[in-house]
């Protein structure tokens, strides 16, 4: 049975991000699976809006970091400043101390600034000047990046890309959606008018429910042979890591919950697969730019259900 709060959240987002039901749903699934989200697409297709909307409807604090090439780690994490009155250093938390961080155009920053963010993503805590500070719960990073072949970008290395559970692409809207967008109200006002559908505590409960979604032995077999196929097939430089497999299963669980089911079906795995493999499987021919949906479809069709 479908959960009404999730349907309401999806409906809210889809009212603002028009004609992108699938990426929107994937993004929500990613957050329900406690993963960080990477949105990659051309400038101006609604990446930032999507991140913003997600934070608003989930009722989470939201900070935005615009990454630039002259950015320093302190700009992300925060800095200690000497307070003349008290005669001591006081830590001024950076923009990362929030529930949802929108890391805009992450690949325009230098690797130094990128790694400051990515370490925080993995550890869910920040260590500066010898002191460790926990990040709030829940904590999401929604990063956007321009396609790496664009000018002025520092591509993220595979190890850091792997920390993003899912990568979604938005793409141009179709004609009808675009027309509605053009004819409709101002998106910024609409976002500002959004009211949270759930409280942060409810989000944590939903995340727990995702973890409880049943994955049968037959389904785990399927995930395993999919991963095994990526490791043995000659198309890719390296196959899916065990962390990627865990992620695939987690997102598939969230997808099943969004569909109102208490168990994962192969369809769930197949639906989220493009988002899992898009930033992880690198083709042997490095220069070829491949559509993750096409790659995922080929992979799915090459692996029969066990």
């Amino acid at each position: 049975m479908r959960l009404p709060e999730l349907d309401a959240i999806l409906a809210d987002i889809n009212r603002i991000i028009l004609g992108k039901e699938r990426p929107v749903r994937l993004s929500l699934a990613c957050l329900l699976a406690r993963g960080h989200l990477l949105i990659e697409d051309l400038p101006g297709v609604g990446k930032t809006t999507l991140a913003h909307v997600l934070a608003r409807v989930l009722g989470l604090d939201f900070q935005r970091i615009q990454f630039t090439s002259d950015m320093l780690p302190a700009d992300v994490l925060g800095v200690s400043i000497f307070d003349r009155d008290s005669g001591a250093f006081h830590f001024h938390p950076g923009p990362i101390f929030t529930q949802v961080v929108l890391a805009d155009e992450i690949n325009r920053a230098t690797p130094k600034a990128q790694s400051a963010l990515l370490e925080a993503m993995e550890e869910r805590q920040v260590t500066t000047e010898g002191k460790t500070r926990a990040l709030p719960e829940p904590f999401f990073v929604i990063a956007t990046q321009n396609p790496t072949h664009q000018i002025g970008t520092f591509p993220l290395p595979e190890s850091q890309l792997d920390r993003f559970l899912l990568k979604v692409e938005l793409g141009y809207p179709d004609a009808a959606a675009e027309r509605e967008l053009l004819a409709g109200a101002d998106r910024r006002q609409m976002v500002a008018a959004l009211v949270p559908r759930i409280a942060p505590q409810q989000l944590l409960e939903l995340q727990e429910r995702v973890r409880a979604v049943h994955a049968s032995p037959a389904l785990i077999d399927y995930v395993q042979i999919l991963a095994a196929h990526t490791r043995t097939a000659p198309h890719w430089q390296a196959g899916l890591s065990p962390r990627a497999c865990l992620g695939l299963l987690a997102v598939a669980r969230a997808w099943a919950l969004l569909d109102g089911r208490d168990h994962v079906l192969p369809e769930d795995v197949q639906a989220v697969l493009p988002g899992i493999i898009g930033h992880r499987l690198r083709p042997m021919d490095d220069t070829a730019r491949t559509d993750p949906h096409g790659v995922a479809a080929a992979l799915i069709e090459a692996v029969p259900l066990p």
Binding site: L265, P266, E267, Q270, I300, E301, A302, V303, P304, L305
Partner: peptide
């Protein structure tokens, strides 16, 4: 039925 096709699909 395609061997990779899930039951619902």
């Amino acid at each position: 039925w395609q061997p990779w096709e899930g039951p619902q699909a």
